[in-house]
Design a protein around this nucleic acid. Sequence first.
DNA 1: GTTTGTGAAGGATTTCACAGCA
DNA 2: TGCTGTGAAATCCTTCACAAAC
Lengths: 230, 230
Amino acid sequence: MTMGFTPAPTGDHPPGADAPEVVVQRLPLYVRVLAQFEAAGAEMVSSEQLGAQLQMTPAQIRKDLSYFGRFGKQGRGYNVKRLALELRSILGLDRQWNAGLVGVGRLGRAIIAYPGFRPEGFRIVAAFDADSDVVGSDIGDIQVRSINQIKKSVDDLGIRIGIVAVPAADAQGVIDALVAAGIKAILNYAPVAAHVPNDVSIRGVDPVLALQSMTYFLKPHNAGASAAGD
Amino acid sequence: MTMGFTPAPTGDHPPGADAPEVVVQRLPLYVRVLAQFEAAGAEMVSSEQLGAQLQMTPAQIRKDLSYFGRFGKQGRGYNVKRLALELRSILGLDRQWNAGLVGVGRLGRAIIAYPGFRPEGFRIVAAFDADSDVVGSDIGDIQVRSINQIKKSVDDLGIRIGIVAVPAADAQGVIDALVAAGIKAILNYAPVAAHVPNDVSIRGVDPVLALQSMTYFLKPHNAGASAAGD
DNA sequence: GTTTGTGAAGGATTTCACAGCA
DNA sequence: TGCTGTGAAATCCTTCACAAAC
């Protein structure tokens, strides 16, 4: 379905290259909800229905999608299958991505064992650690390599994504090494605000930070609340 | 301007009650960086220095803090210890918070074993599961209870936070149960966009979603990148 | 009748820039 | 001098509202 043509450059927007980052971050949510509709057997969905699922306004969904093309049909909505395919292609989810994990402690092992990455096309193909006791061993079917072989492994194995699961104190050093190895996307589990050049994406997974902002609303006087996409 | 006799904060803002949610979400980052400065022995910090660490503009930091009070001294900056204390108090991080975990599968067990919550004042005091084979057993020092005892346990143990680590298909039901039990803050590890009343806070921890938006920038044509706090 | 795609309006957040204080 | 706190300006993001399409 990833045919050679870009959706339909009829609108006023440039192709989709200038979509705000917030919008790009919502796209995976749409993909996920579309999968649910598809599983439920729906052939078409409206922005209204998508919005109801995601607790967003239909207008926002339509505007978001409009950055990338004109995928809907008036009076009818969006074809579930086609929109899902289209968005997956825009996000690059129609291929496999190889990832390298740094840090094979408790957390790193849990990440390797986590079954949620593979079905979505993310494959951890190598693990790295500084501890020479574990280097050379296997965890599941993944070889643990020395941390100073990152660059070589990245090149040899086609690793495009780095996953950081080392203690906070070591995180920036590891991230620098990943960047030096040419990695442009980093998923960081360490509780630090890391520094990267601005052609590198970095996202933090930080449950403590999430809890620490929710407690604000648990204090008696503060009502209201917040929903953050998950 | 409408000041009656507000004891501590002298500013012009209302006490801090109307701080935008984005601002509240950044506060924990400030707390974290302040701890680093404190560990490094600094007594004072400027918004410039904080901004450098967090890759934010000094103006944003000053504006954020101004929602809650006037903590700095012109020409000198902020007292590291005092600001940290003040922010912890605003966020409610100066107490312990009890959490209940739902789902003791692989992920749930990893969460129980995760050593990052306790030092920050978050304590998992009970675990729940639907599987009668595990109900009644202990994981570490935590008892596994039946999922339909949530309400009673929440009351008995003073649980204020729910942590959801069940399969996607079960997540909404579990979240409904937590809400019915009076829980107002939920940390959701399940990959679903959950529905909660708006006096309940919910945050998702979702590494797949994070990866799925980064791949957009890995596609050849899309340069630039993003830094998301971690 | 229904629902999209989108300019224009509205709202929210960030940054500027400077008065005021140490 | 150095740096905060903050109105005002600028930017960014969301929602409105409606013509066009089915």
